[in-house]
Design a protein around this nucleic acid. Sequence first.
DNA 1: CGAAGCCTTGATGACCGTCAAAGACTGTGG
DNA 2: CCACAGTCTTTGACGGTCATCAAGGCTTCG
Lengths: 226, 226
Amino acid sequence: MLTPNPVLDFPQTQTSPTSALLAHARDDDDLQTSSVPINFARNSEIFAEGEGAGYVYKIVSGVVRVSKLLPDGRRQISAFHLPGDMFGFEVDDVHHVSAEAIGPVKVLAYKWQSLLSATSSRGFVHELLNRTMIGLRQTQDHLLLLGRKNALERLAAFLIEMARRTGSDRSLHLAMPRHDIADYLGLTLETVSRMFAELKEAGIIKLESARQVSVLDMSKLEAMAT
Amino acid sequence: MLTPNPVLDFPQTQTSPTSALLAHARDDDDLQTSSVPINFARNSEIFAEGEGAGYVYKIVSGVVRVSKLLPDGRRQISAFHLPGDMFGFEVDDVHHVSAEAIGPVKVLAYKWQSLLSATSSRGFVHELLNRTMIGLRQTQDHLLLLGRKNALERLAAFLIEMARRTGSDRSLHLAMPRHDIADYLGLTLETVSRMFAELKEAGIIKLESARQVSVLDMSKLEAMAT
DNA sequence: CGAAGCCTTGATGACCGTCAAAGACTGTGG
DNA sequence: CCACAGTCTTTGACGGTCATCAAGGCTTCG
């Protein structure tokens, strides 16, 4: 199963009947086995700001960007999500951010109402609470970056974060283009490019290609992130 | 009971025995009645970044700022909390932000472990999840402000937020000094002051005093917040 | 009345955004 | 295999927004 834009085939309203796809969610504690995968093509929309929120997603493969837009098009990416991450939680059944696949993405989808119903396990609510608190902490860290760090510190912090999350210390592959990095760091893509050049000239990183970064001196990189 | 710095008298480690003060938390569902108040003086620390996290707080009166610091002293305030708000949640028993009383503050404190124990009510975990998700959404909104809005838009958004949260449309009292507003908005206090002047000259607000703001034209103010 | 804290206003400059052009990479089709 | 188109990235020149440094005014409280 691979549709060009699966969102269209996919029940989005809260009142829709539980699809066969999601039928397992309610009686299974193990998130890994409670749904079948859905595929999204590169740059396709998983959900949009303002849309009804009925599902929670867990990434099997690929990278997802979660963002907010201003009316004039300015964009802030609030997080990148990697395999294993969950996203799409909402308090009031309306999405307040949008989510898009950066490359090809495979997710598992869970019906939100079922997960929180009386028959779902208590441990699962704790799991959701834990994940949400972790997300809140990461977002607070990002506030400090956006409010108080300069461009070089922001890029250094970003590279460290990505190296840590992908579990790769030396060689780091970036799934997203400069434009997305810029919108995550509150900069322009030109400034991001210049900061890459600066780290390169300082001998701290090596650019194998635009997306493939070798970290030559992690301790210096950490020192730059402040 | 009112001590100059109540934190010192107050068990902060996770392993400390449940104090008499907090004994009710475990068997009472109603947050309003499950603890007795604790007072904090103006500018006193409720908890600090890096400290052990054993308690969750609910504000009875006063305003609290939650912030993070860089080693060189740069500060980002991630939220102001008003009466009725809760703060102090942490996943891993260590605070990753610090919290301080802006003026005199009265809070109720709850032992975190007790709240999540098997004997505590299921509805309460849902309550915590809801509050955490709301906090996450507000923090995501703030990311957009810090990453993509200019100084004037930031101050306009701040005034609107405060007017909404205090339930006052016309006359607005700000509990915090310019410096705190600046650290919340990712600006300097001078820039904040200049933006107040700009809104004043545009006839959108009137400054009765530095802390007392009259909103003369809320729709124009909303237009400026983008 | 004096002192301390807070706020405003002005002058200057740095950092980063904007505009512009050209180089690099990827995949497709001839 | 190569050429071409589209997308992404780099680099340069210039300017604006906001930080920094500085001084003075206001308010509150002893």
